[in-house]
Design a protein around this nucleic acid. Structure first.
Lengths: 132, 132
DNA sequence: CTAAACTCTATAGTAACTATAGAGTCAATG
DNA sequence: CATTGACTCTATAGTTACTATAGAGTTTAG
C-alpha cells in the first residue's frame, strides 16, 4: 500500500510517517517504479506500536529503544522496566506541578469580579505584588 | 544596573531577559556608553511580574495582554477574568489527561518483572497487541 | 488527453527559550 | 600601561515532534 493508505489505516498523518522514517523509527521501505513508498502489514503494525507509545507520551528515543529491544528477544527486559519506571515518575511529577498550579490559579480567580476596572482588579493586583 | 545584575536579582537568565525585550514584554532600555543595557527598579518589578505569570504557565501573548491592561487602569477587567478562566480550564484538562495516562502506565508496569527476557516481557507484549 | 488526486524532497515554522560564536567593553592586576 | 578575566553585545542554531508549504513529478479517472 502507499503512504496515504497507511496513514488512513493507522490514523497517523502522511508527514508523520515520513518523519518517523527519517528518525529511524520506521525502516526505509522499498519504492515503486515512480519512487512512491510501498508498505505492508508489518509496517502498519510497527506504526501502530509507535502510535500507542506516543499516546503514552513516550519520546522518540525511548520508542527507538523499545523497538530495538523487540528485535532482540533474548535480551533481559530490565531496561524496559527502568524506562517505564522513569517515565511514570516524570508524569507523576508533572501532575503534582500542575495540580499545585491550578490551586494558585483558582485562588486568583476569586479575586476579581466582573464590571470592575483594571485598577480595582484583584488578579492584577495580586500578580503585581511580586511575592513569587 | 546591567543585565547580569538584573538576572541575579530576579532569577531570570540573561538570555531570557533579552528574549523578553525582543518579544516586547520588556521595553527597550536606555544603553550605556558602551552599548550595555541599563535597568532600574521598575524593570525588575516588571520582570518579576512576567516571571510570576510564567510560573502560572501563562503564555507570552497572554502576559503581553496583561501588561497592556496594567498600563490602561481605567479599562474593564472582564478580559483578565476570561483569560484566567480559559487558562484554568486548560490546566484542568491537561491534568485529567495525564492522570489517565499514568493509570495506563502503572497498569503496564505490573506486567513485567525483572530477570525475564524481552520475549517474555509483558510490557512489550501488551504494547505490541495494538489495541490502542 | 487532461485534470484531479496523490506522492516526492526540501525547507520553514511552532514555543520559549538555551547554547554558541565572534567581537566589543570594562575593571583590576602585574 | 598592557593584559587578563568577567561581562556584554548581536546573530544564529538547536531543542521536540511534528505541521505546513512550495514546487515538481506520478498515477488514475473520466
Amino acid at each position: 500500500m502507499k503512504i496515504g493508505e497507511l496513514a488512513k489505516l493507522t490514523g497517523c498523518s502522511v508527514q508523520a510517517i515520513r518523519y518517523y522514517e527519517k528518525e529511524k523509527l520506521l525502516p526505509s521501505t522499498r519504492r515503486s517504479e515512480g519512487n512512491f513508498r510501498l508498505y505492508d502489514e508489518a509496517s502498519a503494525e510497527q506504526l501502530l506500536f509507535i502510535k500507542l507509545c506516543r499516546s503514552l507520551d513516550l519520546g522518540l528515543p525511548e520508542i527507538r529503544q523499545l523497538l530495538a529491544l523487540k528485535r532482540s528477544p533474548g535480551a533481559q527486559c530490565d531496561e524496559v522496566n527502568h524506562m517505564m519506571e522513569a517515565h511514570i515518575q516524570l508524569v507523576d511529577a508533572r501532575i503534582r506541578e500542575l495540580t499545585q498550579l491550578n490551586e494558585q490559579l483558582k485562588a486568583l480567580r476569586g479575586q476579581c469580579s466582573n464590571q470592575r476596572t483594571v485598577e480595582q482588579c484583584g488578579i492584577l493586583q495580586t500578580l503585581s505584588s511580586n511575592k513569587s
